[in-house]
């Protein structure tokens, strides 16, 4: 037996001893855990986004298994399908919620809402919001530093450099609500998700009186009540000079969109209108705006 033999022997003995120690320690300090937690965790999407209110999917799985009544728990990322699967597996009744999507309620693009001053400091909406109203005359609107974009773990939000506003990718958005809490101005709202991503909403949070709001932003809601009057479903309510469309009552008839004098009510992802009069009104409005937005860009 040479050096080689001794080496192999020593290593083998060491390995056996270590294995034995590990075995005894593992069996002694073993934590009994419901194996279903592992299964449920696997059924969850595994995004660990915290949209459910727990620190991660494991926490959610733990709660789903241990609680008798799980109607208060919901995974916005997995959605109804995922919750259905889990409820069947656990034999409990899971909550049913309709799918939601995030919308940015501000239309204060560079040309709608001109800058009145320049902020020179840390690029963070939270920092700006703690200091003052923001770079524009509107103290309610988007600050444009992208705290929401940074908060989104699904890459569903992105800053549009032309408008200076964040945009939601409806297909990627899971409605986890991270952006809603990240926005210091509270302009992001979770709304009911319609098929094909269609939506109608008030893209403004300005609570100033009409004239003041209009002065700071041409696309501001001025609280004129026209939309509230035209709505047949009672989905629109104007309070504090600001309209709000309840997405649960709204039927997407789009009458309010036509009525809104400032274009604060926005429709998205609809096919072009068939009525002859409407596009005429819309088209010239939209076209010069696009030109205006392009011009200063070139100069700069």
């Amino acid at each position: 037996m040479g050096v080689l033999g001794y080496t192999i022997l020593t290593l083998a003995v060491l390995g056996i001893v270590a294995a034995a120690v590990l075995y005894f320690v593992a069996s002694k300090f073993r934590v009994e855990e419901d194996p279903r937690i592992d299964d449920v965790e696997k059924m969850l999407p595994g995004a660990n986004c915290g949209g459910c209110g727990f620190a991660g999917c494991r926490g959610m799985a733990d709660a789903l298994v241990k609680r008798d009544d799980i109607s208060a728990l919901y995974c916005p990322v997995g959605g109804a399908e995922c919750m259905k699967g889990i409820s069947e597996y656990l034999g409990k009744v899971a909550a049913e919620r309709q799918p939601m999507v995030a919308v940015v309620r501000c239309n204060g693009t560079c040309e709608n809402r001109p800058k009145t001053n320049t902020f020179d400091g840390a690029k963070s909406c939270a920092v700006i919001a703690a200091l003052y109203a923001g770079e524009t005359g509107c103290s309610f609107g988007c600050l444009g530093c992208g705290d929401c974009v940074a908060a989104c773990e699904f890459g569903a939000l992105s800053m549009n450099p032309e408008t200076g506003l964040p945009e939601v990718d409806i297909d990627k958005c899971t409605a986890c609500g991270k952006c809603v809490s990240a926005c210091p101005k509270g302009i992001i709202e979770l709304r009911k998700k319609w098929p094909k991503g269609r939506m109608v909403y008030v893209s403004c949070m300005n609570k100033d009186k009409g004239a003041v709001a209009r002065k700071s932003c041409t696309a501001a809601c001025i609280g004129c009540m026209k939309c509230q009057k035209v709505c047949e479903f009672g989905a629109i309510e104007v309070a504090n000079n600001l309209a709000f469309i309840d997405s649960n009552k709204c039927k997407l008839c789009r009458k309010c969109v036509e009525q809104c004098p400032t274009g604060a009510i926005v429709e998205k992802n609809f096919p072009p209108r068939k009525v002859v009069t409407a596009p005429k009104e819309e088209a010239p409005k939209a076209a010069p705006k696009a030109e205006v937005s392009a011009e200063p860009k070139q100069e700069a």
Binding site: D120, V127, L131
Partner: peptide, 8 residues
């Protein structure tokens, strides 16, 4: 004049 705003 245009104004700059920043934190102290």
């Amino acid at each position: 004049n245009k104004l700059i705003v920043s934190l102290a």
